[in-house]
Design a protein around this nucleic acid. Structure first.
Length: 292
DNA sequence: TTGCAGGGGTCAA
DNA sequence: TTGACCCCTGCA
C-alpha cells in the first residue's frame, strides 16, 4: 500500500518502506543531531524516540522498522524521518560549489530528523562544552533516573524524562547523572517550560532573530544551542549552528582566515540561504569524519 | 600509577 | 571580553 507516495509493507511486528530515496541510517544518526541510538552495524541501529524503542535497518532503498505499527508510522515516524521532504531538491539548492558537493556526496542520505522539541532542548543544553559520548552517557543517566522503563528484547530501556519529571527533580539528583554545572540549567529550563515562559508556536513563524531571542530566554541556551534546537526539532532550516568543528571547516574551505563564530554564522547563512541548516549538516559530518 | 593538559558552549563579572 | 564551570580522554 502507499502512504503519501511512499510504498509501505506491513511485516511481522513492524513495517517496511520500499524504494525510499536519500536515506542512510548511519549518516542520519551519526551526524551529530541525535543521541539516543545504539549501533548494531552500519545498516542496523536501535533507537529510542517518542517513548518507543525501534530496531531500524536500512539497506539500499529499503527501510525496515521493527517493533512498530502502521499507525505509529503514519502518526510519528513519517514526520520524524522527514519523509515528506524531497532531498534531491534540497541538495540541488545547497550544492553551489565544489566543497559542498564533496560533502554532499560523502554524507549522501543524511536527513534532518524532526525530534521532540523538549528532548532536543535538554540534549543540546547538555551538549555545551561536552563531547558526544559524554552527552550520550548523561542523557542515558537522566533517562534511567527520571524516565519510564520499557522492556524490549529482554533489555531495559528508558524514555526521555518529561519536563514535569525534571521540573520536580532535585538539582543534586541531576548532578548524579554527570550533567555537572549544566544541572541547574536543566532544572531551570524545565521550570520555565512548565511555566510557559516561551511560546513554541511562535518559533516557526516569526523572524529568525526573534525566534533565537525567544528560545534564549531558557537557561543554558546560547547561540549555538539555540540554532541546534530550532534545526533538529524541525522548527526552522535557515539557521546555521556554528561549533568549533564547523568554524574550522568554514574557515579552511571558504573564509580562508581565522575569524569569529558570529562571522562564520552570518557568512554561511548569507552564502547558503534558506536551506543553510542542511548545508551545515553535510559539512559537519564531512568535517568530523575526515578530521578536517 | 598519578597528574596534567586539552576539548568544548554558556554565563556572569 | 575573559575566566569559571564539569568530566572525560590522552599522554607524559
Amino acid at each position: 500500500m502507499f502512504y503519501k507516495g511512499i510504498e509501505v509493507e506491513k511485516i511481522k511486528n513492524g513495517i517496511r518502506l520500499l524504494d525510499l530515496k536519500d536515506f542512510n541510517i548511519k549518516h542520519i544518526l551519526e551526524c551529530g543531531q541525535a543521541f539516543r541510538w545504539e549501533k548494531i552495524n552500519d545498516d542496523k541501529y536501535k533507537i529510542v524516540a517518542f517513548n518507543r524503542v525501534l530496531n531500524i535497518e536500512s539497506k539500499k532503498n529499503i527501510l525496515t522498522i521493527k517493533n512498530t505499527t502502521y499507525e505509529d508510522f503514519k502518526n510519528i515516524w513519517y514526520d520524524y524521518f522527514d519523509l515528506s521532504r524531497d532531498y534531491e531538491h534540497i541538495k540541488s539548492k545547497v550544492n553551489i560549489d565544489e566543497n559542498i558537493d564533496k560533502a554532499i556526496t560523502f554524507g549522501d542520505g543524511i536527513r534532518i530528523i524532526k525530534q521532540d522539541f523538549w528532548e532536543v532542548l535538554i540534549s543540546f543544553i547538555i551538549s555545551s562544552n561536552n563531547r558526544i559520548p559524554m552527552i550520550m552517557t548523561v542523557i542515558d543517566n537522566l533517562s534511567k533516573r527520571f524516565g519510564k522503563k520499557i522492556i524490549f528484547e529482554n533489555i531495559e530501556h528508558y524514555t526521555f524524562p518529561t519536563y514535569f519529571d525534571l521540573k520536580c527533580a532535585e538539582i543534586s539528583d541531576i548532578e548524579k547523572c554527570k550533567a555537572g554545572y549544566r544541572s541547574k540549567y536543566i532544572k531551570n529550563t524545565a521550570v520555565k517550560i512548565g511555566d510557559n515562559i516561551i511560546d513554541m508556536e511562535k518559533l516557526v513563524d516569526i523572524d529568525e532573530t526573534e525566534a533565537i531571542k525567544e528560545i534564549r530566554k531558557l537557561d543554558g541556551v546560547g547561540p549555538k544551542v539555540a540554532d541546534c534546537v530550532l534545526l533538529f526539532s524541525g522548527k526552522r532550516y535557515d539557521v546555521f549552528p556554528v561549533d568549533i568543528w564547523i568554524k574550522r571547516v568554514m574557515e579552511i574551505l571558504y573564509i580562508k582566515k581565522e575569524t569569529s563564530l558570529v562571522y562564520v554564522r552570518d557568512f554561511a547563512k548569507e552564502y547558503f540561504g534558506k536551506y543553510a541548516g542542511f548545508a551545515q549538516q553535510y559539512l559537519f559530518y564531512y568535517a568530523r569524519e575526515n578530521r578536517i
